[in-house]
Design a protein around this nucleic acid. Structure first.
Lengths: 338, 338
DNA sequence: GTGAAAGCGCTAACAT
DNA sequence: ATGTTAGCGCTTTCAC
């Protein structure tokens, strides 16, 4: 650890408070002593202990980012966006992984009430029977911003993308390319974004005169093996499915893997479009059509909102910012003529 | 913020220290008061302020993970490995992104001397003319563990993979599959792992009677566009190149993109193998042969080492743990018969 | 302008 | 078994 203010005060034969004020460039200290203190601080390489002051100020310059996982292009790009503004404002980013378990999420959020961080950015874990109160309690104590996966009924800002519209366009795209039996595959668990996407999906079907049926909506297990198994089961049970809107990137990859294994040719037998930020979507076999979410931007905006609340003390709780996704059409949804 | 010990002491008509000891289950407190305090703490939802105690203990339960980037499967998996042990031990993970700029890295490391964290895990940024002293100063003050990209000459533990052997085997693989003009492509900047890989690459060449020549070693720009440009330039200048060992995943993707654009057929005209942890390597067109690094495991082991130093006060500075990578042969390096 | 003193929330000697 | 006191590093009144 570096030298303390107390020590510097002794060395310079000044009072601790004088040194403290000089370091913070207070107007009540003479230019002369200021320079003297600053020079000495530089010389002995003084670095203030962030947590000592935090006791009085109740501000740590730490923020928490709570995520389901990090090995996913959406979240890793979101972290980049968050980090870009955090670094610029001198804040430090603590990352918490819930692994899609809302019990773990709950205990993390409880812990965050300790004063370890000044604010929280969160993309909630999927989970049924979630208890909203943890969120409410937490956001009474410090600024909290939801991004992407929000939790309705909590008085906190939200940064999302247009899930309804994206799903609607993606589905419409499949139908226009000739699909008659599309499904929406999403991981298990209650999730705001899945809800919206489901609605968008249904809206596109309705527009094409297809009545909604629960069989169009397919849930899959969350883990790697489980979802592979689920996708296999889907094709066993519904061999006539000819289109997939994959709600997450991993599911799309499972669909690709299962299709390959079962000699289902994409896009001839099956068209696939996925919510994904994979930069290499175009290098897949076949290139994957995607709904690209503005991950970096969403992270950036969410963080900016948080710092507005933190630094400018702006009340952002009623903000709800929607940043549109982009549909990138590639070969996996190409029209095929038989 | 939650209630303080002081407040609880008042409410219970006890001394602050008694409450403090009761909470920490000290033997010098009667079972009766302990239960009373614990019950009350639970009732008012007491959560200790981690940084108040940190002043006396000089321990924050925070660790720093310093990385070049997060949108890369190696690093995101490494974070998973780190997080798995950090969560288990009740530690909190702060993530710092250097974006491969060693100046930024330096200022981050300087900041970390403030006492904000108890220890550091780092995978260093590429960079020439780096100043080792920042590392030395830092690791005199707190435990520091290098993982994957280490910095020689610093007295700190290292967790790495067998870069020399991996590169040797990858190159040998290319040669055995018929390549006569392989190159090793690596991003610019001085980097321990690149150094080892270069040696492994050269060793395989030597074994096949090919004398080392600098033209076999190709540097590319670090950023997205830059590396695309570099790869294009490589094929312009050396059209006879028929094999690539890509030192990072992104470069391999650029090679794929450029090959496609220039009608170079992989693996017929060009064989490609990459250091990569992409789970979807097998779904690329063609499936990419990879040297898969034990990212999660490396993160896990590095973190375990750090906590050994932190919790058990074990001196781990001379540890040097090598975890082997695995070569996964896929279509991008398949032998082709003309 | 500078300094003394109190206090942030907690721990740890040292009484009692 | 409980309480008193001091102190961690720093900020912030309030005196001088």
């Amino acid at each position: 650890m570096s030298i303390s203010i107390k020590r510097m005060a002794q060395d310079l034969k000044l009072a601790v408070s004088t040194v403290s004020k000089a370091l913070r460039d207070s107007h009540e200290i003479s230019e002369e002593t200021k320079r003297m203190v600053l020079d000495y601080a530089r010389k002995v390489n003084y670095i203030p202990n962030p947590y000592a002051g935090s006791l009085t100020n109740r501000t740590t310059k730490n923020i928490a980012v709570v995520l389901p996982e990090v090995a996913d292009t959406f979240f890793s790009n979101a972290i980049n966006g968050i980090d870009s503004v955090a670094q610029a404002r001198g804040y430090h980013v603590m990352v918490y992984l819930t692994h899609e378990q809302h019990l773990r999420e709950m205990s993390i959020l409880r812990e965050l009430r300790s004063g370890r961080v000044d604010g929280v950015l969160i993309s909630v874990a999927a989970g049924d029977g979630r208890d909203i109160s943890v969120f409410n309690v937490l956001c009474d104590e410090l600024p909290l911003i939801f991004f992407d996966r929000v939790c309705e009924g909590v008085n906190a800002a939200q940064v999302l993308t247009d899930d309804f519209e994206s799903a609607y366009h993606a589905t419409r795209h499949l139908l226009l390319k000739g699909c008659s039996e599309p499904v929406l595959i999403a991981p298990a668990g209650e999730l705001s974004i899945i809800h919206s996407r489901k609605k968008g999906f249904a809206a596109a079907l309705a527009e094409h005169g297809i009545r909604w049926d629960e069989r169009f909506f397919y849930r899959c297990a969350d883990d790697q093996d489980g979802s592979l198994h689920s996708v296999t089961a889907l094709f066993e049970r519904h061999p006539r499915v000819d289109g997939v809107v994959a709600s997450v990137e991993k599911v799309a990859m499972q669909v690709y893997a299962v299709a390959r294994e079962r000699n289902i040719v994409i896009p001839r037998d099956l068209k696939v479009i996925a919510f994904s930020n994979l930069q290499i979507a175009s290098l897949l076999d076949p290139p994957l059509s995607t709904i690209e979410q503005p991950a970096f931007e969403m992270g950036r905006v969410a963080a900016t909102l948080l710092f507005d609340a933190l630094i400018k003390k702006r009340d952002v709780r009623n903000e709800r910012i929607i940043i549109p996704s982009v549909l990138r059409e590639r070969a996996s949804t190409a029209e095929t003529y038989i």
